[in-house]
């Protein structure tokens, strides 16, 4: 009977076969196993007459064989193609999202921030970057355990999602470090928004090992208005410096970085200078 019941002997045979092939290939041709080289590649086929998709999925899960592509030969292609699609969707999501909180991850955050900087530069509309860092998060983990720490991370993610506008980006960019990109928002308004987020988050109560507790965060804000050229790293460094200052001043607060492009607000090119005034006043 093909494949309906677990077949220990068959599974062992299959795995041994795959392991031998993997060893042979990945020892001598390690590059071919890991990288997409130029000029195509080779797919290796081997028929396993007794195996169906269901059993293969179980096997792949158990032994981490996700890189092997099953191709059923005795039925329509649709079921297994949709399986590929699901896998691709899952991988695409994982590429851009933090699995614990569902927020954007660092990689997609940096990509979005780069676009926002470009937009601000061209349109001269501000963009605000907020870097958030949970205060004394190590103590939370040490005192109440990591599952409890995870709850705190998820709670902050929820508060960020609730308070941001649809087109703002909330991201988890490190263990206890989050970021918010506020599009079209200047310094004054962003301080207001972050203040609201901080007070809402610090009012959350968590159930710890022994007693309830609450957590705060510190945030550094930087605003860019497109006056000077600035890249992602420089923008991050500005906000990070403000964050560092917030920590130094006692945590649980928001500190704004100085505007990087304030000098450019008065446009050099069109200002009426002293020597021009001399002509105008006949002196």
């Amino acid at each position: 009977m093909p494949g309906k019941k677990p077949d220990q002997g068959r599974d062992a045979l299959l795995l041994a076969d795959l392991a031998a092939l993997r060893e042979a290939l990945c020892g001598e041709y390690a590059e071919a196993c890991n990288e997409w080289g130029e000029g195509g590649g080779l797919g290796l086929f081997r028929l396993f007459p007794g195996l169906d998709l269901e059993s293969w999925a179980a096997l792949a899960e158990k032994h981490g064989l996700h890189r092997w592509l099953p191709l059923p030969l005795d039925q329509a292609a649709l079921p297994h193609l949709s399986l590929y699609q699901q896998t691709l969707d899952r991988l695409a999501y994982q590429t851009d999202h933090d699995p614990l909180t569902g927020l954007a991850n660092r990689r997609s955050f940096e990509r979005a921030l780069d676009l926002e900087i470009e937009r601000a530069r061209r349109s001269r509309m501000p963009v605000c970057l907020a870097l958030l860092d949970l205060d004394d998060f190590k103590t939370v983990n040490d005192t109440h355990g990591h599952p409890c720490g995870d709850e705190v991370l998820k709670a902050l993610a929820r508060v960020l999602l609730e308070n941001k506008r649809r087109y703002d980006l909330a991201a988890r960019i490190g263990g206890e470090e989050f970021a918010l990109v506020l599009s079209g928002v200047g310094l004054v308004k962003s301080v207001e928004i972050m203040g609201r987020i901080l007070s809402q988050f610090s009012a959350e109560r968590f159930q710890g090992a022994e007693a309830g507790f609450s957590v705060t965060f510190s945030a550094g804000l930087a605003t860019y208005r497109g006056g000077v050229s600035l890249d992602v790293a420089e923008f991050m460094a500005l906000a990070d410096k403000a964050l560092y200052q917030a920590k130094g001043e006692g945590k649980n607060r928001i500190v704004s970085a100085p505007l990087p492009d304030v000098d450019k607000v008065t446009r050099e090119a069109t200002q009426v200078h002293a020597n021009e005034k001399k002509f105008l006043f006949g002196k």
Binding site: A269, T270, V272, E276, K277, L280, F281
Partner: peptide
Amino acid sequence: EPTSLTDGYAVIKVLASQ
């Protein structure tokens, strides 16, 4: 008046240079 001259010049300057 100097203020009017300066402002008149400023608007000409912006229109000319930008």
